[in-house]
């Protein structure tokens, strides 16, 4: 991709990352812009097993389950981009039910929206054993069997990670990613 485009994208990102002079509504928007950027960035620090690129012309699929907080922001970010040599597709799923199971298991990265809080156990069970990176804003997500939770520390959006869960799913997380995150361990 061209440098100009990157800079353009990053300028948007940068603009939203730095507080000061923005209205609270703008801040509301900027939080999900940052989170959307984080979602895309995860792709660079995670290694999936080779065979999972067989479908969709080798695309990386980001699934959004439940009420989508990102809107067009995420689509704009990934449009026409190659990340680690792959195009990125965004798939949106309505609130969870059993029939989605097959599709969910084909995602590389699954964002579980806050609306799915009560069905969390079933969702995690549905993708269990598949190389799907689960990300959510739901509290105590890493302790409930999830992998990455967006958390907050003052103004800054931080990450809580349960590396054991990721490993169980056959994913490899970069040590650089673990270095900047708060680590949770279960069992």
């Amino acid at each position: 991709m061209s440098t100009l485009k990157t800079l353009g994208f990053l300028a948007v990102l940068g603009l939203t990352l730095w507080p000061g002079g923005h209205a609270s509504r703008a801040q509301e928007v900027s939080e999900y812009t940052v989170k959307a950027a984080y979602l895309v960035n995860f792709v660079k620090f995670i290694t999936w097993p080779d065979k999972v690129y067989d479908d969709d012309q080798g695309a990386i699929v980001i699934g959004i389950l439940g009420d989508d907080p990102f809107g067009a922001t995420l689509d704009d970010m990934v449009k026409g981009r190659f990340i680690e040599g792959h195009i990125v597709l965004v798939r949106r799923f309505a609130s969870y039910d059993e029939t989605q199971k097959g599709s969910l298991r084909k995602c590389h990265l699954l964002f579980i929206a806050y609306s799915e809080k009560d069905r969390l156990r079933d969702i995690l069970k549905a993708v269990q054993g598949s190389p799907v990176l689960t990300v959510s804003e739901i509290e105590r997500f890493p302790l409930a069997g999830g992998m990455i939770q967006f958390d907050q520390e003052g103004q800054r959006i931080t990450l809580d990670i349960n590396p054991a869960q990721a490993q169980k799913a056959g994913l490899t997380l970069s040590s650089k990613l673990l270095q900047i995150a708060k680590i949770y361990r279960t069992e």
Binding site: L17, V34, Y38, N41, F45, T158, L159, L177, Q179, I180
Partner: peptide, 14 residues
């Protein structure tokens, strides 16, 4: 190279 994650996820402390 070691600071890519810190930059990507806005972790200036790291």
């Amino acid at each position: 190279d070691n600071s890519t994650a810190a930059l990507s996820f806005n972790d200036s402390r790291t």
